[in-house]
Deep mutational scan, measured.
Amino acid sequence: MTEYKLVVVGAGGVGKSALTIQLIQNHFVDEYDPTIEDSYRKQVVIDGETCLLDILDTAGQEEYSAMRDQYMRTGEGFLCVFAINNTKSFEDIHHYREQIKRVKDSEDVPMVLVGNKCDLPSRTVDTKQAQDLARSYGIPFIETSAKTRQGVDDAFYTLVREIRKHKEKMSKDGKKKKKKSKTKCVIM
């Protein structure tokens, strides 16, 4: 069974824990209790493949930012979460993405942009803004509501699919490099 290491990042209060708990335990946590770091595991079937999701729910508070490099190193894919009623959390996505790329030393890291709290009427981040940002990053965008469960499975499952595509691409690139290195030079 394939294991996928997913990391949920975003500013404090955007609903990272609520999304994760909704996926794992099928219930909505409405009281806000700032996370330092929590880890969850769940076995699911995605596109006919049974897999184990190892999900790291991270601290959004700035005082825990020193811990970010460590979990970013171990993560295979990242859910970059903002709240649709919090423009600052949307603007912060850029910083999370840049930090992930720096730590992973790669421009090509599996990510999904997630606009959470889409059940709320007080939207300050337009869907088109988020779609445009995701398009500019070359990553999928999904709106979710941890409260109603809308888009929750889709967000995590899409990230797994992005990781699969990335692994497939990397193995193809690896095979191309191996083929090239088999060419021999004969000096007579």
Rank of each mutant, 00 (worst) to 15 (best):
H27K: 11
I21Q: 15
I21G: 15
L23H: 15
A18D: 15
E63Q: 06
C51I: 12
V14W: 00
A18I: 02
Q61E: 13
E62D: 13
K16R: 10
T58R: 06
V8F: 02
Y64E: 15
D54R: 13
I55K: 06
E3W: 01
F28V: 10
I21A: 15
V44D: 14
I46V: 12
E37R: 08
A11E: 04
C51P: 06
E3M: 03
E31V: 10
E62R: 06
G60H: 10
Q43T: 09
E49S: 05
Y64W: 08
Q61N: 08
V9E: 00
L23I: 05
S17H: 07
E31Y: 06
G48A: 03
S17K: 06
P34W: 02
N26K: 12
T35R: 07
I24N: 15
R41F: 03
A18E: 09
K16S: 06
I36A: 09
D54E: 15
I46M: 05
T50G: 09
V8S: 01
L56W: 11
E31Q: 08
D57N: 08
E62W: 02
A59F: 06
L6G: 00
V44A: 11
Q61M: 07
Q43S: 09
T50F: 05
A11R: 01
T20M: 07
P34H: 06
A18P: 02
T58I: 11
D54V: 02
I46K: 10
Q25V: 01
E31I: 07
D38E: 10
D54T: 14
G15I: 00
V8A: 01
Y4R: 10
Y4T: 07
G48Q: 07
G13S: 05
Y32L: 09
E3Y: 06
A18Y: 02
D38C: 10
G12Y: 05
G12W: 01
K5D: 04
G15R: 00
E31F: 09
N26F: 01
S17V: 00
D30N: 11
V9P: 00
I24W: 06
I36L: 11
G13Y: 03
Q22G: 12
S17T: 06
C51S: 05
T50H: 09
G60Q: 02
Q43V: 06
Y64S: 15
L6H: 00
G10D: 00
V29R: 12
D33R: 08
G15S: 00
F28N: 07
R41D: 10
V7T: 14
V29T: 10
I55E: 13
Y4A: 08
E49L: 01
L53I: 12
E3F: 03
K42T: 08
E49G: 05
E3Q: 08
G60L: 02
H27G: 14
T35V: 06
Y40G: 14
T50V: 06
K5E: 01
L23N: 15
D30G: 08
I24L: 15
Y64G: 15
N26I: 04
I21H: 15
T2Q: 14
E31N: 11
G48I: 01
E31L: 06
H27M: 11
I36N: 15
E37W: 04
G48V: 02
E37M: 02
A59G: 14
D30A: 11
V9G: 01
L19S: 13
I46H: 05
G60V: 05
Q22R: 09
D33G: 10
T35P: 05
F28T: 05
T58D: 13
R41W: 03
I55S: 09
V44W: 02
D57T: 12
D38R: 07
L56V: 15
T58F: 04
D30T: 05
L23M: 13
G13M: 14
R41V: 04
D57W: 13
C51M: 04
Y40C: 14
L52I: 14
Q22T: 03
R41H: 09
E49P: 02
D30K: 10
V45C: 13
N26P: 09
E37G: 12
V14H: 02
T50Y: 03
V44R: 05
Y32M: 11
H27A: 13
I55C: 11
Y64M: 11
V44L: 09
D33I: 08
E31C: 09
E63T: 04
I21V: 14
S39C: 07
Q25I: 01
V45S: 12
K42C: 04
I24F: 11
E37I: 10
D38S: 10
I36F: 06
G48Y: 03
L53D: 01
H27T: 09
E62V: 09
D57E: 12
I55T: 12
I36C: 09
L6I: 12
A59C: 09
G10F: 00
K5C: 01
T20Y: 05
A18N: 05
L52M: 14
I36P: 15
C51W: 11
V14M: 06
I46T: 02
T50R: 09
L52D: 14
I24V: 11
R41L: 06
N26H: 07
S39F: 04
E63H: 07
T20R: 12
D54H: 14
E62N: 08
P34M: 12
I55G: 12
L53F: 09
Y40H: 12
Y64P: 15
E37D: 13
A11F: 13
E62I: 09
G13P: 05
V8R: 00
V9Y: 02
S39L: 04
Q22V: 01
F28I: 14
Y40L: 11
G13K: 03
P34C: 12
V44E: 12
V14K: 01
Q25P: 15
E37H: 02
Q22P: 15
E62K: 04
L23T: 11
E49R: 07
D30C: 08
Q61S: 12
L52Q: 15
Q25N: 04
S39H: 11
I36V: 12
D57Y: 13
D54K: 14
P34S: 11
I55L: 05
E31M: 03
I46W: 02
C51F: 13
L56N: 14
I55P: 09
Q43H: 09
Q25E: 07
S17Y: 04
G12H: 03
E63G: 11
P34T: 03
K42Y: 04
Y4L: 06
A18F: 03
L56P: 11
F28R: 09
K5G: 02
V14G: 09
I36Q: 14
V9F: 05
T35N: 05
T20A: 14
K42H: 06
A11N: 03
L53M: 07
D30I: 10
T50I: 03
L52T: 15
I21K: 15
C51D: 06
I24Y: 06
G15H: 01
V45Q: 01
Y64L: 07
N26R: 05
K16L: 02
Y64D: 15
V9N: 00
A59V: 09
T58G: 11
G10E: 00
D47I: 01
